[in-house]
């Protein structure tokens, strides 16, 4: 369903152009959860933003193809791109506080995509939004629907973000470091929720994280990126059990193990 072929991203807002992603290839089947791991500056978020069609068309140059169900996101018109965004492709970011409009009630923000992409009436939209809030396991949806982002906890905000990304039933969800800013217990709950949504709806998820451990918990396939290049790719068990490249080995060795340094 998603094929990224030879994607190169180059920044042009400085005197010397800087390439941040080299020859990125990705194939995703419907219903797959694919992880991209890497450290800061590895280009993982850039690649994800490009897939979501969220990179500026002005300051950066992109070469290659991003085919979503056969349609090239890089060459299609802005109109076509907007039609896909929100309805076919949903995206959730790390910072739930900055991704929500602080002056808008949560309910209205969850409904936003419906307002843009469907002709549902106000009542129907409200019903869909309430359902969706319940689906992401928020309690007291009536209150949440009416509250402002700052009245919610980090975990609740991230659930709201998920609800608004999922409300139009997208087939592909791009999740960029969505558990990073959360407490561990909340992190675990959000991952369980994602897995459950994935099983119920067969949604494909492109899961970006710096945390190998989180990726291991949720993904079936993983790409390891370093300095703009994919250095290793494979099934999660393979990559974790039997890493091929030195970089992946170093990454795995860096995860604090339940084992002491001294001793």
């Amino acid at each position: 369903m998603l094929d990224v072929i030879d994607l190169n991203i180059e920044f042009h807002d400085h005197l010397i152009p800087e390439t941040v992603v080299y020859d990125f290839d990705l194939h995703m089947d419907p219903g797959e959860i694919v992880g991209i791991v890497g450290e800061s500056g590895s280009g993982k978020s850039m690649s994800a933003l490009a897939v979501a069609g969220l990179l500026s068309r002005k300051d950066m140059q992109k070469r290659g193809k991003i085919l979503y169900q056969g349609q090239d996101l890089l060459s299609c018109s802005r109109r076509e791109l907007r039609k896909l965004q929100g309805s076919e492709i949903g995206m959730v970011f790390q910072e739930p506080m900055h991704s929500l409009n602080p002056l808008m009630r949560v309910g209205a923000q969850v409904e936003e995509a419906l307002l843009i992409h469907t002709d549902l009436s106000k009542e129907e939209r409200r019903k869909r939004a309430m359902d969706m809030l319940a689906r992401v396991e928020l309690k007291d949806t009536e209150r949440i629907y009416r509250s402002y982002p700052h009245e919610l906890s980090g975990g609740q905000r991230q659930r709201v973000m998920l609800a608004s990304a999922l409300i139009c039933d997208p087939k592909l969800l791009i999740a960029d470091e969505i558990t990073t800013a959360l407490d561990v217990t909340v992190q675990a709950a959000i991952l369980d929720l994602l897995k459950q949504l994935h099983e119920e709806r067969g949604i494909s998820i492109l899961f970006i994280s710096h945390d190998l451990y989180v990726v291991k918990r949720i993904c079936s396939r993983v790409l390891v990126m370093q300095k703009g290049r994919v250095v290793e790719e494979g099934r999660v068990e393979e990559v974790f059990e039997d890493p091929k490249t030195d970089y992946t080995k170093e990454l795995l060795a860096s995860i604090p193990k339940i084992r002491k340094l001294r001793q």
């Binding site: 450290e39 800061s40 945390d211 990454l251 860096s254 995860i255 604090p256 340094l261 001294r262």
Partner: peptide, 18 residues
């Protein structure tokens, strides 16, 4: 910090303690 960097800073703290 990134995990690889994390590990090194932890090693440093451990060494300073020792």
């Amino acid at each position: 910090l990134d995990v690889t960097v994390q590990a090194k800073v932890l090693q440093l703290l451990d060494r300073l303690n020792a």
